[in-house]
Design a protein around this nucleic acid. Sequence first.
DNA 1: GTCTATAGGCAGATAGAC
DNA 2: GTCTATCTGCCTATAGAC
Lengths: 216, 216
Amino acid sequence: MKKTAKQAPRARGPGAAARAVLDAAEALAQTRGYNGFSYADIAARLGVTKASLHYHFASKAELGRALIERYHAGFAAALEAIDQATDEPGAKLERYVALYDAVVRNDRMCLCGMLAAEHATLPEPMQRQLRVFFDANERWLAAVLEQGCRTGRFTCSARASERARVLLGALEGAMLVARSYGDPQRFRAAADFLLADLCKAAPGAAPQARARARPG
Amino acid sequence: MKKTAKQAPRARGPGAAARAVLDAAEALAQTRGYNGFSYADIAARLGVTKASLHYHFASKAELGRALIERYHAGFAAALEAIDQATDEPGAKLERYVALYDAVVRNDRMCLCGMLAAEHATLPEPMQRQLRVFFDANERWLAAVLEQGCRTGRFTCSARASERARVLLGALEGAMLVARSYGDPQRFRAAADFLLADLCKAAPGAAPQARARARPG
DNA sequence: GTCTATAGGCAGATAGAC
DNA sequence: GTCTATCTGCCTATAGAC
């Protein structure tokens, strides 16, 4: 079933090169920001020239657009996976936080949180994409909080969508500040605090709220 | 009492030019980030040439250092003013939030929050200054929370310093995300939620928690 | 203190060979 | 798809006149 051996690069499948560019750009954007990296940085990581990058993404604005698009799609898939893995609101939130915790432990910041800081300097399409990402996150979180409210799992103060907005901002901010200390534990501790607060009025109802994906 | 009329520029006092440079750079850094502005931008705003800026700040790294230094000093003075204006922990927190609210209403982001996003690209002296700023804020907040705990003004869960850290991160994150929507009200609403949470277990003890400095 | 002029480098981007 | 070569423009920074 082997294709002609000459086509080794093609063997990785179509779009593999573009994906490699996105991977490198994503890592750079999440650590240094959109204004903090250049085509030269990506080219150096991949061992190719700057010119070849323009074959896949004609402009940096187009690359940035594709970056958010893929990131959002991946995040949406992760949220769907959570919904299918469990119905328990507390477990959902714990897994949601775990998504960000993985990002932080990888010495990165949420891509969209990072880009939000640079908002004023971004091409307008990217600005719109950021709002779409945050809106989707808030909607998902609001639904989880609302469910937790109904079932008595969480402190119920209604206004789930406002609480979702605060929670998302708090998680982004915890990542932001933690970066200055190079200490992933700082994020995890803040996240645990935020999760615990949701259960404050329902003691004993937060059994595994502090479960870890990995040993501390 | 007039000086010789020839010295009009000097009349603004020594260092006035340097201060004007810092003012312009600060506004740019808080809206576009450290990597999002150049000497050319500052020069254009002040109506001078790029070269003249180097007389006051030899390098951009030195300018950045001076930027954080002055910002932190101003913030420290504001915190001291709050301490002298009131002893009530709730009022202190309300005034603390008002400091950030003024920043947001000015279409800016906290300078250090903005720079925290760009942390990986900053000169090492600036990186250290960021930690100093956040540490000072956390200490002040922790003292206020601790006092509110003792007096029963706030929900008392001990661990004031951890709660202070979460609160600071949450405020920075609320600013960060609100920027993408260009809506200052988004920050204020999140801040009110955070303040209200501190009083959740002490209903009726949060009379003016939602007081505004200006009409909405 | 501010200017003109310029250096030296890196940015994003394009043309055209292979 | 990737390369070499190159363009244009902006960046930080410096020299030296006024």
